[in-house]
Amino acid sequence: MAYDPLSTALKFGFLAVLFLFLLVIARSAFRDLRRTAQPAPDATGFHAAVGQVEVQRGNDAWLIAERGGGLAHDERFDLIGGLSIGRSKDADVQIDDRYASGIHARLFSREGRHFVEDMNSTNGTQLNGGALSGEAELVDGDTIQIGDTVFRFEAS
């Protein structure tokens, strides 16, 4: 095999361009990693569902359907990682209620305590019969009403 300077030069040139190109893209990827190190607020609770599963152990909480919304009586939803309630098909608890907004309210847990928050719904959310503004902490037995749909909160 004859030694061919041109071929060798092209080979090393190829490798050099290849690695420079990959390096630039990798740099951009690393920068992304650093930025996503702090998890973005996640409306669907998709990642929260993954992260908080272990934390929640032994501190279970449920949202239980009482009446309305096209849900079965006593249907239970685990609060793991938070729940969104609304008419939209993206809501974790999808309710069929004409007074409900797409994403009407959400339930979430923070440091072992549980909260309900109205998501700027059109017709508002009622907590134990009173209007809810912003977020409020939930205790066992609270009732949450959205339109004609009533839920009970249960914590153990």
Binding site: D4, L6, S7, L10, K11, G13, F14, V17, L18, F21
Partner: peptide, 12 residues
């Protein structure tokens, strides 16, 4: 890279 690759193959 594609050009360099083809050039090298042709050169060979």
């Amino acid at each position: 890279l594609l050009t360099a690759g083809f050039a090298a193959v042709f050169a060979q």
